[in-house]
Amino acid sequence: MWKCIAYDSFDSKYETLKYTRPKECIDYPLANEVHCQKVYKVKITQDLRKYTAPARGSKTWKMIFKCRTAVERVNAYLKKFFQPNNVRYHTGKRAKVHFDMVTLVYNASIAN
Protein backbone atom coordinates (compact mmCIF):
# COMPACT_ATOMS: atom_id res chain seq x y z
CA MET A 1 0.00 0.00 0.00
CA TRP A 2 2.65 2.56 0.99
CA LYS A 3 4.83 1.88 -2.05
CA CYS A 4 2.33 3.36 -4.48
CA ILE A 5 1.75 6.73 -2.76
CA ALA A 6 3.78 9.90 -2.21
CA TYR A 7 3.42 12.82 0.20
CA ASP A 8 1.43 15.71 -1.26
CA SER A 9 0.44 18.27 1.41
CA PHE A 10 -0.77 18.98 4.95
CA ASP A 11 -4.29 20.23 5.69
CA SER A 12 -4.11 22.29 8.88
CA LYS A 13 -7.90 22.65 9.15
CA TYR A 14 -8.47 18.91 9.54
CA GLU A 15 -4.92 18.08 10.71
CA THR A 16 -4.45 15.52 7.97
CA LEU A 17 -1.56 14.50 5.77
CA LYS A 18 -2.47 14.05 2.14
CA TYR A 19 -0.77 11.37 0.06
CA THR A 20 -1.41 10.88 -3.66
CA ARG A 21 -0.62 8.17 -6.15
CA PRO A 22 2.17 9.30 -8.51
CA LYS A 23 1.75 9.01 -12.27
CA GLU A 24 4.41 6.28 -12.36
CA CYS A 25 2.13 3.96 -10.39
CA ILE A 26 -0.57 3.78 -13.04
CA ASP A 27 1.00 0.55 -14.32
CA TYR A 28 1.20 -0.83 -10.78
CA PRO A 29 -0.58 -4.25 -10.81
CA LEU A 30 -2.79 -3.36 -7.85
CA ALA A 31 -3.45 0.27 -8.85
CA ASN A 32 -7.16 -0.31 -9.33
CA GLU A 33 -7.61 -2.11 -6.03
CA VAL A 34 -9.26 -0.51 -3.00
CA HIS A 35 -6.06 -0.21 -0.93
CA CYS A 36 -4.27 1.83 -3.64
CA GLN A 37 -6.48 4.91 -3.82
CA LYS A 38 -5.67 8.05 -5.80
CA VAL A 39 -5.77 10.21 -2.67
CA TYR A 40 -5.12 8.88 0.82
CA LYS A 41 -5.51 11.08 3.94
CA VAL A 42 -4.21 10.30 7.42
CA LYS A 43 -5.00 12.24 10.59
CA ILE A 44 -1.81 13.11 12.47
CA THR A 45 -3.61 12.51 15.77
CA GLN A 46 -3.91 8.84 14.80
CA ASP A 47 -0.25 8.29 15.79
CA LEU A 48 1.78 11.41 16.56
CA ARG A 49 5.11 9.59 16.38
CA LYS A 50 4.40 8.03 13.00
CA TYR A 51 2.56 10.87 11.24
CA THR A 52 4.23 14.23 11.73
CA ALA A 53 3.48 17.65 10.30
CA PRO A 54 5.38 18.41 8.13
CA ALA A 55 5.56 14.85 6.84
CA ARG A 56 8.80 12.90 6.94
CA GLY A 57 10.70 13.14 3.69
CA SER A 58 9.33 16.57 2.71
CA LYS A 59 11.68 19.52 2.15
CA THR A 60 10.42 21.33 5.25
CA TRP A 61 10.95 18.27 7.42
CA LYS A 62 14.50 17.83 6.13
CA MET A 63 15.28 21.48 6.95
CA ILE A 64 13.89 21.14 10.49
CA PHE A 65 15.74 17.86 11.00
CA LYS A 66 19.07 19.44 10.00
CA CYS A 67 18.61 22.11 12.67
CA ARG A 68 17.64 19.53 15.25
CA THR A 69 20.65 17.32 14.58
CA ALA A 70 22.93 20.34 14.89
CA VAL A 71 21.51 21.09 18.34
CA GLU A 72 21.76 17.44 19.38
CA ARG A 73 25.46 17.39 18.41
CA VAL A 74 26.08 20.30 20.79
CA ASN A 75 24.12 18.57 23.56
CA ALA A 76 26.14 15.38 23.08
CA TYR A 77 29.40 17.35 23.26
CA LEU A 78 28.31 19.07 26.48
CA LYS A 79 27.26 15.77 28.06
CA LYS A 80 30.52 14.07 27.10
CA PHE A 81 33.03 16.71 28.15
CA PHE A 82 31.28 18.77 30.85
CA GLN A 83 29.28 15.94 32.46
CA PRO A 84 26.14 17.76 33.62
CA ASN A 85 24.82 14.51 35.13
CA ASN A 86 27.64 14.44 37.69
CA VAL A 87 26.70 17.71 39.41
CA ARG A 88 27.03 17.27 43.18
CA TYR A 89 24.37 19.80 44.19
CA HIS A 90 20.74 19.45 43.34
CA THR A 91 19.23 22.82 44.21
CA GLY A 92 17.84 24.71 41.27
CA LYS A 93 19.91 27.90 41.63
CA ARG A 94 23.31 26.24 41.92
CA ALA A 95 22.59 23.74 39.16
CA LYS A 96 21.48 26.60 36.88
CA VAL A 97 24.67 28.54 37.64
CA HIS A 98 26.69 25.42 36.81
CA PHE A 99 24.82 24.96 33.52
CA ASP A 100 25.28 28.66 32.66
CA MET A 101 29.02 28.39 33.31
CA VAL A 102 29.26 25.28 31.13
CA THR A 103 27.49 26.99 28.23
CA LEU A 104 29.63 30.11 28.68
CA VAL A 105 32.82 28.06 28.51
CA TYR A 106 31.53 26.13 25.48
CA ASN A 107 30.58 29.33 23.63
CA ALA A 108 33.93 30.93 24.47
CA SER A 109 35.82 27.88 23.23
CA ILE A 110 34.11 27.82 19.80
CA ALA A 111 34.40 31.61 19.35
CA ASN A 112 38.20 31.43 19.03
Rank of each mutant, 00 (worst) to 15 (best):
H35V: 09
R49I: 10
M101G: 08
F65D: 14
A6I: 08
M101A: 12
C25A: 07
A53K: 02
V74W: 03
I64C: 11
V87N: 13
R21Q: 05
V42Q: 03
T16S: 01
M101T: 07
N85W: 10
Q83H: 15
E15K: 08
N112I: 09
I5W: 03
W2D: 12
M63K: 15
V34N: 14
L104M: 13
K38R: 11
A31E: 12
G57W: 00
K62R: 12
F10W: 04
L48I: 13
V87R: 13
A70E: 15
C4Q: 02
L30V: 07
V71L: 15
I5N: 05
A70I: 07
V87H: 13
A111I: 06
R21P: 02
Y51F: 06
V102S: 00
C25N: 04
T45C: 11
G57D: 01
Y19E: 00
E15Q: 09
P22Y: 03
A31F: 05
K41Y: 06
Y28A: 04
Y77H: 15
D47Y: 00
C36Q: 01
H90Q: 10
A53Y: 03
N85I: 06
D11C: 05
F10Y: 10
N86M: 15
V42Y: 00
A70C: 11
M63D: 15
W61H: 06
R21W: 01
K18R: 10
V97E: 08
I110A: 04
M1N: 09
R73W: 13
V34H: 14
H98T: 15
D47L: 02
D8S: 10
T20K: 04
N112F: 04
K59M: 07
Y51P: 00
K50G: 03
A53I: 07
V42F: 04
K41L: 08
R68Y: 13
I110M: 07
F65W: 11
F82M: 12
E24T: 13
Y89S: 08
N107Q: 03
K23F: 13
K38D: 11
V87F: 13
R21H: 00
N85F: 11
S58V: 02
N86Q: 15
D8H: 10
K66Y: 03
R73M: 14
R88K: 15
R68C: 09
Y51D: 00
V102K: 00
M63G: 12
K80F: 06
N75Q: 13
T45Y: 08
